[in-house]
Design a binder for these strands. Sequence first.
DNA 1: AATGAATGAGGTTTCATTCAT
DNA 2: CATGAATGAAACCTCATTCAT
Lengths: 237, 237, 237, 237
Amino acid sequence: MSQRQSKSEAAGNRESERRRTILRAAIDVFARKGYHGCRVADVAREAGVAYGLVYHYFKNKDELLETVVETGWSGFVSRMRAVAEDESTSLEEKVRGIADVAFEAYRVDPRAVKVLILEVARSPAGTQVVSRQQAFLDTIRMAATMFARSQTTGELRADLDPMLCASLLFGAIELGLTAFVSGLMEDRSPEALDRAKLQIAESFLRGVLPGAAAPPEASWKQEKVSSGTKQKVGKRS
Amino acid sequence: MSQRQSKSEAAGNRESERRRTILRAAIDVFARKGYHGCRVADVAREAGVAYGLVYHYFKNKDELLETVVETGWSGFVSRMRAVAEDESTSLEEKVRGIADVAFEAYRVDPRAVKVLILEVARSPAGTQVVSRQQAFLDTIRMAATMFARSQTTGELRADLDPMLCASLLFGAIELGLTAFVSGLMEDRSPEALDRAKLQIAESFLRGVLPGAAAPPEASWKQEKVSSGTKQKVGKRS
Amino acid sequence: MSQRQSKSEAAGNRESERRRTILRAAIDVFARKGYHGCRVADVAREAGVAYGLVYHYFKNKDELLETVVETGWSGFVSRMRAVAEDESTSLEEKVRGIADVAFEAYRVDPRAVKVLILEVARSPAGTQVVSRQQAFLDTIRMAATMFARSQTTGELRADLDPMLCASLLFGAIELGLTAFVSGLMEDRSPEALDRAKLQIAESFLRGVLPGAAAPPEASWKQEKVSSGTKQKVGKRS
Amino acid sequence: MSQRQSKSEAAGNRESERRRTILRAAIDVFARKGYHGCRVADVAREAGVAYGLVYHYFKNKDELLETVVETGWSGFVSRMRAVAEDESTSLEEKVRGIADVAFEAYRVDPRAVKVLILEVARSPAGTQVVSRQQAFLDTIRMAATMFARSQTTGELRADLDPMLCASLLFGAIELGLTAFVSGLMEDRSPEALDRAKLQIAESFLRGVLPGAAAPPEASWKQEKVSSGTKQKVGKRS
DNA sequence: AATGAATGAGGTTTCATTCAT
DNA sequence: CATGAATGAAACCTCATTCAT
């Protein structure tokens, strides 16, 4: 802030600046080519720094991803948690808040969200450090807990599985965002984003809130027996 | 079937038997460690065949995945399409049918579904052959078309984006299945699967069908302005 | 042995042949440039094989050295042990036998001995797998035990430290061999080797066997006080 | 000495102080992990100075070792030479003197001695600057010359190879010291050191001085033919 | 003098793919 | 068909050295 920074301050700033540059480059490259599809050299080139500098700031390629994920995810999760555990709000507000957080994250840094979706949300279990895979699941569990609490207050239909509600909500949000990330949605304007967010939240709420308008269950109840048996879904030719 | 098979038949059968063994092994290994996390040798070992035999039946590692995906996905898609484009059924039945197809596929071969979810649904755009990435998106587009048609008949609320509806449905289904795949759902009995399927379909339908019971929109309409702006979601420190 | 070898036999032979080729090349290269001074590529080139084949037969560069050492050393040690623990021989015969084993090893494969001397005998403790450093020390300990036993039978002067006797013997042998390895000894003919071997064994024996002719200790006893004090050997602080 | 030092003197002192600190650290680190097993950063950390400062005082890593060796070795050699070339002493006194010098060097700075043993005495020929490898050999040659002279005066048995005598002496001393360095000798007290020194010198002298008590050569003369032939020392299977 | 960030050549290791048997 | 040894390009990582401050 002061006109003159002490040497160490200046150095400290430059260091974190470089570090951030590399992290930024990593996000961009990971988003573009995927973690496995890019080389450390790509990240370095994107960042405009020498090869070895990446290893000055990060132990190895994996830690680079780990850091990208952690910084991106931890903020996301803490905001999510703040919304989900706010005792002064209704379930409805919470759900809308969660959608807000997710879409806002996308608005601010779509590429980072893409990396999170691609490399964190889904990835073989055993492969990486527990944290990565777990991070995503923990978030869903957190939401499930939120839904379970809502059932005790009657805000959520009692016949629903809270874990499934959570999956449903996050699945909708995630694939909604994926639609933007992947180019399925042509209009990526802020307004379109906002509309998508609202639609997702609203549809979800309509579906799970205890409302008068139950869907005409009768029609499917009688055919549910057949489901799962009449379909032949043999995987291989 | 006959006691004696002609030479070519026998050879053909033995070949496809081996081929199938390898494909099966590939599915299992991909599901366990991911495409990038495993080596061709792992697949060969899992199949109990020699190293080079994999290359006898498949051009390269990528074709192996391609084949896994194609055989798994094409059946899935055709069944999906049959359901979605059946002109004699209501939207509700179609949606339930889609959920049926997805969950039945999981019931029959959960590991194959896992591979499809991991390696097909999400993966960086540029990386692989177009087909893979496209396959998933095409399916969503197909569902979007289905929803769009339903709007013309008044079966679906007109104010919803069909593409988003498709994302919402598939997102819910996919993450629902992920909940099983990842172990989030402890009870993986057929009954639990069935329950999940029904809940997902029903909640989705409730949310998007034109019903009397609109959710209390008033409550959020007045705060919607703020959403996407008041939240501070800065990704990095 | 038979004219026709079964497939696996042939393969087995070819495999071990290659493996041996690489090991041989490693010995030569290690002897010439040292473990740290050469690249895996050098070994591959020397062996006339492709780069990656080295890794087909050995886990990594370190295992390559480990194997060189083990195969070379284990034979050496077992022969040494056979000599040292033979209860039917006199100490004198044992000492001569040990010199035999060492010099014969050098005659048979001087480069392998060079590698053993360079990379095994001495090397920082913590660096490598225990076995390497320990192997050498264990051999000395074995000899020390042999000397200790000889003291009980009166074959060795009782006033000597067995461990030091072992060090003395092996030090003499090792540096004797080093004189050949390093080119200090110009004549490397078998006869010269034999002469060196005999001289070393004989001088050692003269020095440690209980003989009438004690060295004129008187002469140094009176000046021993000064030793270790008058010399200024400060390495610089 | 004077109360006031000129600026350059002061600077010079400070410089050499730092320089010495780094050199000291290098000795310790080299002794602990070996030249190849450590990084320049390790030396810097051990010295408690910044990374680049090492390069302020030394051209490169190799010069660091070179300097360690030179300062350590040159003093050692000049003391050794003073003893070996002192025309007023008997061979016996010279040998005892050499042992004195070596053990005193170890007493004063065992780690420096370890480095000398590890990095100087043995190291592949081609690897480094000639001086290093040569330094050790030259010392042995010097001793060999000393022994050769002793033969002309009849102090040393005429049937011995002077070069081998030198190797024998230094081998015994070196491995004697190694026994201490490596922990083979449990008692490392000054007294134990002194005892070892005396035993080595005395045994060596007994072995090589022309004494009445020749070892019973007869016993081995008749079996010497076999040596080197009956032993099967094939290195590999 | 002192610092440690920055550089990049050089080495190791992996693993998809080919090929001889 | 089947095998698995052989190949080598491509990626990762290390670390000596330089350089701007």
